[in-house]
Design a binder for these strands. Structure first.
Lengths: 338, 338
DNA sequence: CTGTTAGCGCCTTCAA
DNA sequence: TTGAAGGCGCTAACAG
């Protein structure tokens, strides 16, 4: 292994000088800089991060924590896409990215503790939001830099987080349905414990209210991402005395299940029932019909969270803030005029 | 930060003793071990990896390299799933996982070099296989431990890799079609540059030949994962004078596109055309009809690759080998009897 | 502008 | 069974 000393020896300067040219210290003459750099190149020098981190107290690495993989949600194309978003800025800033690998909540907590105490990373991005999350409590107590993708359940003001305006998105997409002549609009969402679900549902609600449409609890269904959940939801809706003519579904993957079950039951989309969705995952484009969906810019959610986190790790005093990533609606073929 | 010295001071032993109990050195008396451990617990001691790695020369970290994200393939649920598989053994072995973040081939190469030279990781898992891959060449030249998920293009014997028997899988699923009475069977695969495609296609071919069925080039189509690709493939097939009655598609995500296009063109699956697929991604179960598909045990591919890699990093002399993960066919509703 | 000195936290001989 | 001493590779004062 080529060390700083080796290049120092070859160049005839001191190790600290070499260290300085690595840091591009302005107080080093261009001449020696050039000389040293050539030697580094020539010898194939590469700085050892462990040595560096040991003294520098900064790792230029960030940890990304996935939800416990008990959550089937992991199958959601959402994750590769946020990871890409995070990766893009990580890479641009020359950071590295450590991914959590725990499966249960406890394992994940232990892992995060190891990351923090062992100084594996400078900061952490949480890709989920849970009530009473021990991981988050731990991070807060230790005052360790972290950012959440999504919306924290409490202390909104104290936690930097990156989210969409899901309320308005839900409202707007529902309004679109209303403008298309629909009045009997149902809602299928994930667990009520998730803020995404809640916010989108509130928006849906609000649109109905504003339009003077009735609030029908039987039209609101909360289910799992799983097929069985989607199936059950649809069956419930179809067995209603008055069937909805449109459904707002909070996730493209769920929409795929809903779509299938709907058509299996002989109802055609959008002829019989219209569908709108969220996320604009790749598959929303290749379903039949292609889904009208809210593009929440997943990549951007990731990128922004990484930017915000790095900013915090560099300067701990930057105030926490809420970052809203804009969305836009992609109109395709899953909605019919009434 | 609590260091080894702190617990030494509190316990009244020397730092080296503390270091020894951390390593669970047998030559330390149970009494002092107990004493030291309690102090560690009490003070909240956690070992600093950078200090450790600096001397230990092993990082207990492995790098996972994704394909360049230009590849839309990243949207494939395959990746989260291998990651989970890798993560499971990473976690069990108390390793950590660094994910590549580069977008282009060059960026990725630079990243891998940084990982290797800077001793970020002990070994690397390649989640893709490319001809003339500079990353792989680099790893080989440096004799740096790595494992590939999939099949390398050359030096099969020299490179440890984890793969399915895609030939046999392709053959078996095609035989199933034949056994169901199909004789005009088409094939839609990804790029011919991918071994997965090639192997599965060879298997398909072989099944046809064995059954004495004709080899029709017009029935074999290579396309992208993208919608447009799937669409074009299907259109080509449907415009043929003699339409196939069944199609082998090499990926569930592609199948979704094929399915959509097929039904848009008014052909029903499986009534008019049957479909079989590969991977058994979550979505293969929620399409309509649910897909008969080869479950390649993605999670296991990941887990095995991690195991093999760790084995190699621990003992560089273990010979390279080929690890075959078994597959099995999941029968669902996308195939009809002829 | 550059060299010297002193660690960062840990592990590992070598002695005792 | 334990302690003392040195060093892993790098950076950061402090001197010049």
């Amino acid at each position: 292994m080529v060390t700083i000393k080796d290049v120092a020896k070859v160049t005839g300067v001191s190790p600290s000088t070499v260290s300085r040219v690595i840091a591009d210290n302005p107080r080093i003459s261009p001449a020696t800089k050039k000389k040293v750099r050539e030697a580094m190149e020539h010898l194939g020098y590469h700085t050892n991060i462990h040595a560096r981190n040991l003294v520098a107290k900064s790792t230029k690495a960030i940890g990304v924590i996935m939800p416990s993989s008990a959550d089937k949600a992991l199958q959601n194309p959402f994750f590769p896409e946020v990871l890409r978003g995070i990766g893009s800025v990580i890479h641009e800033r020359q950071y590295s990215l450590t991914l959590s690998s725990g499966e249960t909540e406890q394992e994940i907590l232990a892992e995060v503790q190891r990351m923090v105490y062992g100084s594996y990373v400078d900061g952490v991005i949480l890709l989920y939001s849970r009530v009473d999350d021990p991981v988050m409590s731990f991070l807060q107590e230790r005052d360790f830099p972290f950012v959440m993708v999504g919306k924290p359940f409490e202390k909104l003001q104290e936690i930097t987080h990156v989210d969409n305006d899901n309320f308005t998105a839900g409202k707007q997409i529902t309004n679109y349905l209303i403008a298309s002549g629909h009045e009997k609009i149902a809602f299928i969402g994930g667990s009520k414990d998730l803020f995404v679900t809640r916010d989108r549902e509130s928006g849906y609600q609000s649109a109905l209210t504003d339009a003077g449409l009735p609030n029908n609890d039987a039209y609101k269904i909360h289910t799992e991402f799983l097929k069985s959940g989607g199936r059950e939801a649809v069956e419930r809706l179809l067995s209603l005395p008055v069937r909805p003519t449109a459904i707002v579904v909070t996730d493209d993957l769920m929409s795929l299940g809903v779509l299938s079950t709907l058509e299996e039951s002989g109802v055609q989309v959008p002829r019989d029932i219209s569908l709108v969705s969220f996320n604009n995952a790749y598959l929303s484009e290749i379903t039949r019909p292609a889904l009208t969906t809210v593009d929440i810019h997943i990549h951007e959610l990731g990128a922004q969270s990484a930017r915000a986190l790095i900013e915090r790790t560099v300067d701990k005093t930057v105030p926490s803030r809420r970052i809203i990533v804009p969305y836009n609606i992609i109109y395709r073929n899953s909605v019919s005029e009434q």
